[in-house]
Design a protein around this nucleic acid. Structure first.
Lengths: 126, 126
DNA sequence: CTGACACCTGGAGTGCACTCCAGGTCAAAT
DNA sequence: ATTTGACCTGGAGTGCACTCCAGGTGTCAG
């Protein structure tokens, strides 16, 4: 599978795909004779994983470390788990914070509605 | 109230407080004779609002517009409400996305646990 | 009167995560 | 034979949100 297809499939630019590989956010993708990348299904799974985790704001550095450990084999399972747990906690924290702000926004919006709705009713009554 | 106190109270650097004011993320803070900022309670509420919204990732530009409209008076209530609704939707969207990733991380962590726990039990059984 | 502080300004620098670009290779189509 | 198009690389540029810095002012303690 060539890079443009992977780009379409996961809605990531080819630049981003090459960038992710360069910095180790995904393992190296095998090349054809001509030097072009040829993504296997396994590579696509890494791309999808990276895209997914990045979409939630997990930092590149943590994901880079995770991938590096993965490539070092089974002896790194505990270390990988530690990274996942750590990132999971931080993400849960961010979600909670954002949820609180969402609630506050809803309240604020409701208060604005309270100002505006009576005005509209006045207009309608005329 | 001087800037260092506001800085402590809201856990924002004095640089950030001056920056927020410079770019219009909060309205101008009144100055004493000496030219030093003297935050009133109202200014503190703006600081707190900015800090809170920024903590959830609302973009500075949207907040800047909201503040600008607010300063233009009551005729801008609909416009302000539109910004709030828009940001609310985007935030809800981000939270949903992150929640999905959190769930996926939990699943992944559970699978790692499934690998590791049996190994520990083996060790314990020896 | 001289430090020592807290404050001020404008502007430069930083970190993160891309994104774009120039210059080049290669294979297939005209 | 050349043009087109997808790909390659290394490196520069971008946008966002700060963060730091140099040079200066005002106030108060010793």
């Amino acid at each position: 599978m060539q890079i443009s297809e992977v780009s379409e499939r996961f809605d990531l630019s080819t630049d981003t795909l090459r960038y992710y590989e360069k910095i180790g956010l995904i393992p190296p993708v095998p090349r054809g004779e001509n030097g072009l990348r040829d993504y296997r299904e396994e590579d696509c799974r890494w791309v999808e994983f990276a895209r997914c985790m990045r979409s939630a704001g997990l930092p590149i550095e943590a994901l880079r470390q995770y991938v590096a450990l993965f490539r070092q084999g089974d002896g790194t399972i505990e270390a990988r788990l530690a990274i996942l747990r750590d990132q999971r906690e931080q993400l849960a924290q961010r979600i909670a914070e954002q949820q609180a702000v969402l609630d506050r926004l809803d309240l604020k919006i409701a208060r604005y509605d309270d100002i505006l709705l009576p005005r509209e009713q006045e207009l309608a009554a005329q």
